[in-house]
Design a protein around this nucleic acid. Structure first.
Lengths: 359, 359
DNA sequence: AATAAATATGAAAGCGCTTCCATATATTCT
DNA sequence: AGAATATATGGAAGCGCTTTCATATTTATT
């Protein structure tokens, strides 16, 4: 049994008595538990080779003293940090970001990690990124679109050997796991829904075809149509953009002609909203004359009138999953999976879709 | 002149040659610059009492070696951290959050700080908050609404002496600066705009009156009406909530009666959107029969049809200002201002407002 | 010119941890 | 039984910085 030095005991007692949380260190815990700091460290880091009774003693002492390990000392001494990076490009839509953040944060909290958020866009220099990574030694990084496809960023992360999980990336890279939804399957579900309502003439507004998910949604649409033996009119397939005006344009091209579809599948809710506006201008009633579906279930989807039938990505869960993967390789020294992890989407039926009118 | 040890020189040269950024430490810089580590530290922290030539030497060496001070070592040795906290309650609207984050981050980058994001809601225990604060020793905290009015959180921050800036808080606390807009003035501008268009019968949908800003907007409305000698009908003043359905209800109460106002001032864009939906259902044309103004300029405001006349809070700038205040007390040991800092809003005129119809 | 005050610099002592190394004890294997 | 191995524990050396203290060098003051 280790002897407690008077000074240490004094200090601890005073600290506890005066309620002034004058920082408790690992050696205080060691004193109280009657073990060495090494042992305390072992217990706290879940290492082997500590007898049960000592482990318990340490845990008790640590709880009694309300010991909070100093993150900086740990990071300096060990070579891991307790910071998880959430790396973003210019916000990919506020709600999306907020969801990501919430999911990642929850999981991080469980693992005793903290979320550091940082923006990097395509114009960020490699130097700046590397300097950031060097400085913070992130114990993991989560990349959301479109940052997850930023080559410079990916290169920097690889060079600095930061474990990285990407969310909905456009392309796969070996050794970099990702979390995504099955865009193809989701888009087929949506298209099949429209077809099942009796629609035979369906238009499609695609997202940026640079992105794999946009391409998959489009080909799913084509496949579903083909499977149902329905023709696809190329004039009814348009590409949207990020600006609302451009989306209005895309919707107008499809809807403002003598022959127009009875249903419209928009690759995201914003473009669907634009379509609703256009339909309204053209005096096309929804859903009587035109069914519209979106994708993403943004808050706008339920605010629109009629509310938008759409697909919800499990945004929060995706981020949580990503954070979980990274947290696990820390604690259990698991390896990151190579294959993408695919989560289920939720199809949300609202008022913007209806039976095809009999004409 | 200090002599360079062979090993040090070797190590540094090899490191530079092999391009493998094997971490450069402060003593490497000291060697190359021909000074002590103390001096390097002084230069890097902008302290006095360093001769110009040495300062230059240090800066050069540090640049040449691409030296990145180790954040953890600094935080451990000194008692400041390089982390700024952005403390949120359950996301106050995604776009708002995204803006806050962008603003705060930009300013933090300039100051060499990093943004740690963390959620705390009203149900979070004091213990959990304190433990977080103890562990991270944030060098500053930015609180967004509604976290900025979380007493428990405020108490914890005060106890841990974390410099804090609150954004748009409901109440002032001494010694805790805040950044906000002049809600009263903004609401007067909006109301005066409606009045100047000839409207005499104006309704108002208030936000949660628990919040000071909502109260101020309401009293500004009343004052403007009074100043113009116009009556205010209490039935035309309703309170909105957070759910879209509730907002629909509020708008309906005002609009769905024999006598309804010719203009409606909604305390935020969401409620204005609800009003537009209700107006549409009641076959009230906007802006011919009814002018509507919102508040916040969310993306929805420009997506609506007609686009919403509204007021934009300088969200990003507010966060940047908050971050700036906190960064300054670090570097220049300035003190935090006691009085709230008030930023200007921008009145945005769009299609949802028009001249009062002559009836 | 002599003294006081301001300026400039480095050695060394930590900050609170983790981890290597040495040692001690318990367990398993010939 | 003794050797080989697995289990348990602590001492002490850092991790890369900041900061105190002592000391040297200038500059201002009488």
């Amino acid at each position: 049994m280790k002897t407690l030095s008077f000074s240490a005991v004094n200090r601890i007692c005073r600290a506890m008595a005066s309620k002034k949380v004058s920082k408790i260190t690992i050696s205080d815990v060691a004193c109280v538990a009657g073990v060495s700091v090494t042992t305390v460290s072992r217990v706290l880091n879940g290492e082997r080779y500590v007898r049960e009774d000592k482990k318990r003693a340490v845990l008790e002492a640590s709880a009694k003293l309300d010991y909070q390990p100093n993150v900086y000392a740990r990071s300096l001494a060990g070579d891991r940090s307790y910071l998880m990076g959430l790396l973003l490009d210019e916000a990919p839509g506020g709600e999306y970001l907020a969801g990501m953040q919430r999911g990642a944060m929850k999981r991080c909290k469980e693992a005793g990690l903290h979320l550091v958020v940082e923006h990097f866009d395509r114009s960020t220099e490699l130097d700046e990124i590397e300097s950031f990574l060097t400085k913070l030694k992130l114990s993991g990084a989560i990349l959301t679109p479109p940052a997850c496809d930023n080559k410079v960023l990916l290169a920097a992360l690889a060079r600095k050997k930061v474990p990285t999980v990407r969310i909905s990336p456009s392309e796969q890279y070996p050794g970099m796991p990702s979390v995504k939804i099955d865009d193809y399957q989701a888009a087929r579900t949506v298209t099949d829904h429209l077809i099942s309502l009796g629609h035979k003439e369906i238009g499609f507004i695609a997202g940026d075809l640079e992105h794999a998910d946009a391409r998959e949604r489009l080909s799913a649409f084509r496949d579903s149509m083909a499977a149902a033996g329905l023709p696809v009119l190329e004039e009814w397939i348009q590409t949207g953009r990020y600006l609302f005006e451009e989306n209005l344009g895309a919707a107008t091209k499809i809807l403002d002609q003598s022959q127009r579809p009875t249903a419209l599948f928009s690759s995201n809710d914003d473009m669907a909203a634009a379509a609703i506006v256009v339909a309204d201008r053209l005096n096309i009633r929804i859903p009587q004359d035109l069914s519209i579906v979106g994708f993403d279930d943004t808050p706008m989807a339920s605010a629109l009138s009629p509310a938008l039938t759409t697909v919800r990505q499990p945004v929060e869960e995706m981020a949580a999953t990503a954070a979980g993967l990274l947290a696990d390789i820390q604690s259990d020294s698991k390896r990151l999976p190579d294959a993408p992890i695919i989560l289920d989407v939720e199809f949300i039926l609202r008022g913007s879709t209806g039976l095809a009118s009999h004409n």
